[in-house]
Computed example of a mutant assay.
Amino acid sequence: MKMFRYAMRNKKFQEFLILTVVSCLVFSGCSRKEDRNSREESGQGGSTVGNGSAYTLDTKVADVISDPAFDGYGRLIFPVDRAIDEDLRLQDVEEILIWYNNVNPDRTVEIANYLKDHASSGEKIFYDIYTEEEKEEDPAKEDTGLFFFRGEPGAKTAIVNAGGGFSYVAAMHDSFPQALELSKMGYNAFALIYRPGAQTACEDLARAIAFLHENREELQIDTEDYSLWGGSAGARMAAWLGSYGTSAFGEDEYPAPAAVIMQYTGLSDVTGNEPPTYACVGTSDGIAPYNSMAAYIRRIQKNGTDAMIETFDGLRHGFGLVEGTAAEGWIDRAADFWERNTGE
Rank of each mutant, 00 (worst) to 15 (best):
Y55F: 14
Q91C: 14
I77R: 11
D117Y: 11
M308T: 15
E224A: 15
L205F: 05
A248Q: 03
S284Y: 02
D174P: 02
S42T: 10
G320P: 10
D204S: 04
G304A: 08
D92R: 06
E95S: 14
Y296H: 05
D332T: 12
G186T: 11
T144A: 06
P68N: 11
A233L: 01
Y264I: 04
G197R: 09
A162P: 07
F312L: 03
P105S: 02
R299W: 01
Y226D: 00
L57A: 10
R195W: 00
G122E: 15
L88A: 03
T342E: 01
F319L: 04
M237N: 02
E95F: 13
G231R: 06
D35M: 13
V49W: 10
P139E: 02
G186W: 06
E224H: 08
A233Y: 01
E123W: 05
Q14L: 13
E224K: 12
L76D: 01
K2F: 02
I221Y: 09
R299S: 10
R89M: 02
H317A: 07
D35A: 13
A208Q: 01
F70R: 03
T48F: 02
W338N: 01
N10F: 00
V21D: 09
N51Q: 14
F190M: 04
N215C: 06
I65Q: 10
A69K: 08
D204R: 02
G43L: 06
A294M: 13
S167Q: 11
I77T: 11
E137G: 00
D222I: 03
I261F: 13
V21W: 03
W338F: 01
E344D: 15
T48L: 07
P177R: 01
S183G: 06
S247V: 08
R32H: 13
T200M: 06
S121L: 11
E142G: 00
Y55R: 08
G29D: 14
A334K: 06
N10P: 00
W229C: 03
F190Y: 03
D313S: 12
Q178S: 13
L97M: 04
Y296P: 01
Q301E: 08
H118Q: 11
A279M: 10
D332C: 14
A54D: 11
V103L: 09
P276L: 07
R5V: 04
Y168N: 09
A179D: 06
I261R: 11
